[in-house]
Amino acid sequence: MKSSIPSFCCRCSSGLRSTATRSRRYASTSAPPPSASPKSRWLGLAVVSAAAAGAGAYIRSQSPSSGTLNQETFTKYSLVSREPVSATSSLFTLRPRYHSDGNYEVYEDAWRIGVWSVMFKQPQLQIGRDYTPLPTTAATSLSVDEENEGYLRFFIRKDPFGEVSRYLHSLEVGADIEMRGPQIECVIPEETQEILFIAGGTGIAPALQAGYSLLNRTTKENRPRIHILWASRLKADCVGGESDTAKALVPSRSWFSGWLGSSQSSASNPPAVAAVSQSQNSSLVVRELEALKSQYPGQITVDYYLDEENRFIGKNDLSKFIKSTDPTEDPQKRKLILVSGPEGFISYMAGPKVWAQGQELQGPLQGMIKELDLKDWAVWKL
Rank of each mutant, 00 (worst) to 15 (best):
S4I: 09
C238Y: 01
S78Q: 14
S143G: 14
I156V: 14
V239I: 15
S78R: 15
L152Q: 06
P33H: 10
P297F: 02
Y131G: 00
I195N: 09
A267H: 06
S35I: 11
C10D: 13
E146Q: 14
P271V: 06
I198F: 06
L91I: 15
R22Q: 08
S257Y: 02
R95T: 13
Q62W: 10
L318N: 07
R97C: 08
S4F: 12
L318E: 06
N70G: 00
I198H: 03
I195F: 10
G363R: 08
A272K: 01
G211M: 15
S277H: 01
A267G: 05
K381S: 09
P327E: 05
F155V: 01
S13V: 03
W380E: 13
A231K: 06
T137Y: 03
T75W: 03
V339D: 11
N316P: 00
P271N: 12
G67L: 02
F8S: 09
A50W: 04
K353G: 12
V286A: 04
G174P: 08
V106C: 04
N269E: 03
K320H: 04
R25G: 00
Q362C: 11
S7H: 13
E105I: 02
P160H: 04
G56E: 07
K121D: 03
L284K: 11
L168P: 09
G351E: 10
A50F: 07
E163P: 14
N316K: 14
A87P: 04
D330R: 08
K121F: 03
A378N: 10
E185M: 12
G211K: 13
P251G: 12
I195D: 06
A50Y: 02
I5Y: 13
S4Q: 09
Q278Y: 02
E105Y: 08
L306N: 09
Q366A: 15
T93A: 15
S28Q: 11
R17E: 14
E194L: 08
S294V: 03
D130S: 14
M349T: 11
R157E: 08
W255P: 06
F154K: 04
G54R: 00
G203Y: 07
P342I: 03
L214E: 06
I300F: 05
G241L: 09
P84W: 03
I188S: 08
E290R: 12
S347E: 13
I228D: 03
K381E: 10
A139R: 07
A46F: 02
P342L: 01
F155S: 04
I188D: 08
S282Q: 10
Y104C: 00
S347H: 07
P342W: 06
T29F: 12
K353Q: 15
C10P: 04
Q362D: 13
S265N: 00
A110T: 02
G174H: 04
L69I: 10
P96S: 03
G15M: 00
M119E: 14
S324R: 06
L292V: 07
T29K: 05
K39D: 12
T93F: 09
A246Y: 05
A51C: 00
R180L: 07
R217K: 15
L94Q: 12
K323M: 08
I5K: 10
P133V: 07
L43N: 03
S294W: 00
T21D: 09
L234D: 12
S35H: 12
S7R: 15
